[in-house]
Amino acid sequence: MKVTIITATYNSADTLTSSLESVLEQDYPNIEHLIIDGGSTDNTLEIIQQYCCADNNIQCYSEPDNGLYDAINKGINLATGDIIGFVHSDDLLAHPEIISDIVAYFEKGNYTGVYGNLLYVDRKDTDKVIRNWTSNIFHCNLLKRGWMPAHPTLFLKKEVYKECGSFDDSFRIAADYDFMLRVLSKNKYKFGFLPKVITKMRMGGKSNKKLKNIVIKSQEDLRAMRANDVKNPLVTLFLKNVSKLKQFI
């Protein structure tokens, strides 16, 4: 199966190289890497161009956009892979065999989606773990407790996007949560938990670097829950936030 990896960038020069290298180092032979740039003004595009020249499977598209989710939607529309996943410009794949592991798991379980574990790491030292997001075997009842897989670890067959639509970019921070509620609640899909670390995410992301953004995210989480008919959304929001505390232990 062909795997499309989408990376959205905007003035990402400080962290982009390690993200691109983590994709380039994968031992899986059939990867399409789409880089969707929002019109960077630093040397992001220079870095990307070096990689595009070295590997024909890397393609870059650069133009102004309406933020991260707009860029992701553009990437989804351009994707030609059977499976779609994301490596954001602050993130990196955990090890060179992980895409091979993911594809093998898709095939083994005939899954529609596969997800795994995530490590939050120091921005400069990506071997220094700050938080450990260990996921669970999927059951739809977990959604009522505020559970969700770490979105950067979630790989889905392209058909899911055709059937469920793309990310709602009216959300500033929580469009991934809204999208996952929409998809994970579908009984027709089968999701597999690969018990391995798939992604390392640098601390300081959009949803957790400022108190204001944490408040906005909580408001948007509530909006997503109500839009997707989650019962008792205030309780679910409380459980969702409390469940994150164990990631620091």
Rank of each mutant, 00 (worst) to 15 (best):
M1C: 08
K2D: 02
T7L: 14
A8F: 14
T9D: 15
N11V: 10
D14T: 10
T15D: 09
L16K: 08
L16F: 08
S18I: 12
E21H: 09
E21G: 04
S22L: 07
Q26N: 06
Y28V: 03
N30T: 07
I35H: 10
I36Q: 07
G38R: 15
S40Q: 13
S40G: 13
E46F: 10
Q50Y: 07
Y51P: 00
C52Q: 14
C53K: 15
C53F: 13
A54R: 14
N56E: 14
C60Q: 15
C60W: 13
E63V: 09
D70G: 15
A71Y: 04
I72N: 06
I72S: 05
G75S: 10
T80P: 01
G81F: 09
D82G: 08
D82A: 13
I83G: 03
I84E: 02
G85S: 07
F86N: 02
E97L: 14
S100H: 11
I102R: 07
V103W: 11
V103T: 03
Y105E: 15
F106S: 06
F106M: 08
G109F: 15
N110Y: 13
Y111N: 07
Y111M: 12
T112E: 06
N117G: 05
L118V: 06
L119C: 04
L119P: 00
V121R: 03
V121N: 04
T126V: 11
K128M: 06
V129L: 02
R131K: 09
T134I: 11
S135N: 11
N136I: 01
I137S: 05
F138Y: 14
H139E: 09
L143P: 00
L143E: 01
G146P: 00
T153Q: 05
T153F: 01
K157L: 04
K157Q: 03
E159P: 00
E159G: 01
V160M: 03
V160I: 14
S166H: 13
D168R: 13
S170I: 03
S170K: 14
F171Q: 04
A174H: 05
D176Y: 06
L181P: 00
L181Q: 01
V183L: 02
L184S: 00
N187V: 02
F193Q: 05
F193C: 08
L194H: 12
P195V: 08
T199V: 08
M201I: 01
R202H: 02
R202M: 04
M203G: 04
S207D: 07
S207C: 11
S207I: 03
K210Y: 12
V215T: 04
I216K: 10
K217S: 14
S218K: 12
E220W: 08
E220M: 09
A227P: 01
N228F: 01
V235I: 13
V235S: 12
K240W: 12
V242F: 04
K244R: 04
L245Q: 01
L245A: 02
K246M: 00
Q247H: 05
Q247A: 02
